[in-house]
Simulated assay, not measured.
Amino acid sequence: MRYAQGGGLTAGRRQSRERIRLQAAERFARGEKTSVIAADLRVSERSVERWRRTWREDGPQGLASKGSAGRPRLTDAQFAVLEEELAKGPAAHGRPDQRWTLERIKTVIGRRFHLTCSVTGVWRLLHRHGWSWQAPARHALERNQAAVELWKKDVWPHAEAPRRHSGPGWSSRTRPGSR
């Protein structure tokens, strides 16, 4: 079962589902009918049939949980190594400019860890570890940061357009000049 937000079952829910499958395996061994097992365990007959087939082929261990379907491909230690590689910059990896793209990071992961993943998978991995898509702002070498801060503090508040008023006597239909 997958959810719209992209998550899957929690670890506790996975264990609960595994217990149900193992209960079914005990009942398979006793020769109980699929319909009875499905009704007692409150699952579909189709699921019980699928479990029975797996049980016949692989035994009860075949019904054990395989873990999260969305588990990260890189361990935390590997991700730390990836961060070190990214900190070196794209030029250290043979790129002509200083921009990391998901495609370039995917290539680094492939070369460094011998793993293939999709561009979307790279995005999810980075997002899960707190990275964002935002690029740092570029500033001119001649930029005077003190002058910029002074302008923001003194000039910008007066240059900003007045905001809509709210409160008693103001509505979205009333214009300030029409009162």
Rank of each mutant, 00 (worst) to 15 (best):
P176T: 09
A39T: 10
K88W: 07
A159H: 08
S68C: 09
E160F: 03
R13E: 15
W100F: 06
P162V: 14
A29W: 04
L115M: 11
V148S: 05
V48K: 01
A4D: 15
G70F: 06
A24D: 02
R112E: 09
T34G: 00
K153W: 07
A146C: 08
W51F: 03
G12S: 06
R179H: 07
P162C: 07
A159G: 03
Q98A: 13
N144H: 08
T120L: 05
W55M: 11
R179E: 02
T116V: 06
A64W: 03
P168V: 06
F113R: 02
Q78V: 09
A24K: 02
F79W: 12
R42Q: 15
E57A: 14
H158Q: 05
S172E: 14
L141E: 12
E45P: 03
L141F: 02
G6R: 04
S16W: 10
R173P: 07
L150N: 12
R46I: 12
L141H: 09
G12F: 04
P176K: 13
R138T: 08
W151H: 13
Q23K: 11
R19S: 13
R56F: 03
K152L: 14
S172L: 13
A64P: 00
P72K: 11
G94M: 04
G31K: 05
W51A: 02
P162L: 14
I105F: 07
A38W: 13
S65L: 00
E85L: 10
L22Q: 10
P96H: 11
H93S: 00
A161T: 00
N144W: 06
F28T: 00
S171Q: 03
G8K: 08
W51T: 04
R179S: 06
W170T: 14
